[in-house]
Amino acid sequence: MERLIEILEDIQPGVDYENSQDLIDGHKLSSLSIISLIAELEEEYDITIPAVEIIPDNFNSAQRIMKMIERLQEEY
């Protein structure tokens, strides 16, 4: 989780990623940040994030992003 928070802060600083639960719904992560985030996550965690996974439910908090990563890792 620490590494994920680091990636998020590197992409878009100034957001409380530990506690925020509305990263997408609250417009805290822009669509450009999401494009960066996906590229970084795929590299870091050796996963493939298809377009279908880009929904608020998967990106609204760091915890949810982590959950998605774990699920995608499990799929292989």
């Binding site: 590197d10 450009l32 940040s33 494009i35 960066s36 996906i38 590229a39 970084e40 795929e42 298809p50």
Partner: peptide, 27 residues
Amino acid sequence: TTSKKMKKLTSSARKKLGSHYGPLIAG
């Protein structure tokens, strides 16, 4: 934006152009 080529482009562009302009090319 999540196609293989674009993701590669975003990764490399972000290292050179930073967090805002890097993903802007694919965007």
